[in-house]
Design a protein around this nucleic acid. Structure first.
Length: 471
RNA sequence: GGUGACAUAGCCAAGCGGUAAGGCAAAGGUCUGCAAAACCUUCAUUCCCCGGUUCAAAUCCGGGUGUCACCUCCA
């Protein structure tokens, strides 16, 4: 497996610290609101990565945090905890809010066939670990106390900017509106490890610590949770590209300062989903959630296919036109799978080259677009239907588009219709057949239109009329 | 202002020095009373622009232009 490593910006062969086992960490959601489909693009592509690694035969140990405390709207004095803000808005306690949106997040993931990581840990469940890590950083001289908070001292590092070639002089603090300088910081890039600031008195969740009653900074949780659950050597750290700086940069700073050796070798960043103007999270108007897609009549897996057609390292522009495009492609694809005969035994030998082709596509920096091409080419090939069905199921271990299940559903759609309705439809079809016999095309077409209005699609075949209900 | 990425047909998109995959849409055909569905066929002499390296460049180098992102909300 070759992946583009953000640390080097090059495609590198993935060599895990422990042969055959991949330790993979994912920055989880801050559960203060519903995830939008841009957030979910990252989790979706990380899911594909995990499954592609398993397909290659790796064992994958994966952990993810749930940020339910400490993620401020800003790191400076004016910062407000996102969870607290959300709780106020919805008249819930912070923990109720977290539980609600954690469930909503995983419900969305399930609809997109995103596998839940083996280990999912809420930040509030690991406060002791954070305190231990912060204490160690203070002991080692990588942290200092000021104004009631504990800060990480970035000047103690020889190379703080691991992603790209930035330097402190050029770092413009406060370019963004609402961001203010924190006078307690010795260096512009220092960041908070533990807050006790009185400004946050209304913070609901606080814990005792050696530095007073307070709560952890945002960056510390990922380091602590990752090290605790996956060990001192991490193979792949995933997340959206916006997290590269400062979140991941800070994670590396504190983790390596704490461990005293290199921590994570490969950084896997998913680029953003944009709309015409810019990234989705900045869009105005209705928030693009999975539920919204469903309300508009899209199968969430259509969005999965849409993402798979593109590459994780490229910005992807979302539009409903493009989604319609994917919906059409999804429908055609499943119809094709549904048409495959079910009897016969797959020919494992003949299947092998196709599996290799599919795997090679994924091994090439997770080129899902090429992997889909392998699927299309395979369906076009002269393999037996049984072998094709076998390969569709095999590929779907990674693609997770429910290709066989959707095909099943298409085949089984008729019996799902209530008997009464079915009789009614059959009667109309019979009436249309009479009209057609009498060459009364106007009447026949009127019946077809009526059925179409009720989402009944007719299919005239030499063997007779077939029908199914769409949507 | 600094940093980074990207630019390929109507749209999405692959391509990683050897002569432009795939999907959607569209057009023509088979089938049909007409449709729909299905199947067959067609669809980039050219890859943002200008130079350079090379026998050979969408691919490498230099310079432009444009788009997007990051620089303490974000996935």
């Amino acid at each position: 497996m070759q992946l583009t490593n953000t640390l080097t910006m090059k495609k590198e062969e993935l060599v895990p610290h422990q042969p055959g086992v991949i330790k993979m960490y994912t920055c989880g959601p801050t559960v203060y609101s519903y995830a939008h489909i841009g957030n979910l693009r990252s989790y979706l592509m990380e899911d594909v990565l995990e499954k592609a690694l398993r397909y290659e035969g790796f064992q994958v140990d994966r952990a993810m945090n749930i940020t339910d405390v400490g993620h401020l709207t800003s790191d400076a004095d004016t910062g407000e905890d996102k969870m607290l803000k959300g709780a106020r808005r919805e008249h819930k306690s912070v923990l109720e809010l977290a539980a609600f949106y954690t469930n909503a997040f995983f419900a969305d993931c399930e609809k997109l066939n995103i596998r839940r990581p083996d280990t999912v840990v809420p930040a509030t469940g690991c406060i002791g670990d954070f305190i231990q890590l912060v204490s160690a950083l203070l002991d080692k001289g990588f942290a200092y106390q000021a104004g009631g908070n504990v800060y990480f001292d970035t000047s103690k590092l020889t190379d703080y900017y691991v992603f790209g070639n930035q330097n402190a002089e050029d770092l413009a603090v406060g370019v963004r509106e609402g961001v203010e300088l924190d006078g307690n910081k010795r260096n512009k890039t220092d960041f908070v490890l533990w807050f006790t600031k009185s400004k946050f008195e209304d913070q609901e969740l606080k814990w005792e610590s050696p530095w007073g009653l307070g709560y952890p900074g945002w960056h510390i949780e990922c380091s602590a949770i990752s090290i605790k659950n996956l060990g001192e050597y991490l193979d792949i750290h995933c997340g959206g590209i916006d997290n590269a700086f400062p979140h991941h940069t800070n994670e590396i700073a504190q983790s390596e300062a704490y461990l005293g050796h290199p921590w994570c070798k490969y950084w896997f960043h998913v680029l953003h989903l944009n709309d015409g103007g810019g990234k989705i999270s900045k869009s105005k108007g209705a928030k693009l959630t999975v539920s919204l897609l469903e309300e508009k009549g899209y199968n969430p897996l259509v969005y999965r296919l849409f993402c798979l057609q593109s590459h994780y390292r490229k910005p992807l522009v979302f539009s409903f036109d493009s989604l319609d495009n994917a919906a059409s492609a999804y429908h055609k694809l499943t119809a094709r799978v549904a048409a495959l005969a079910k009897d016969g035994e797959p020919d494992q030998e003949a299947a092998k080259p196709w599996q290799e082709k599919f795997q090679a596509s994924l091994a090439n920096d997770l080129n899902t677009s090429l992997a889909l091409t392998a699927l299309y080419d395979m369906l076009k090939s002269d393999l037996s239907d049984a072998t094709k069905r076998f390969l569709v199921g095999d590929f779907d271990r990674v693609l997770s588009l429910d290709l066989l299940q959707a095909a099943e559903k298409q085949n089984a759609q008729e019996p799902q219709v209530p008997e009464e309705l079915a009789r009614e439809i059959e009667a109309l079809i019979e009436k249309r057949a009479q009209a057609r016999k009498a060459k009364d095309w106007a009447a026949a077409d009127a019946i077809r239109d009526e059925l179409a209005a009720r989402h009944v699609v007719l299919k005239d075949t030499p063997a007779g009329v077939q029908w199914h209900i769409e949507g």
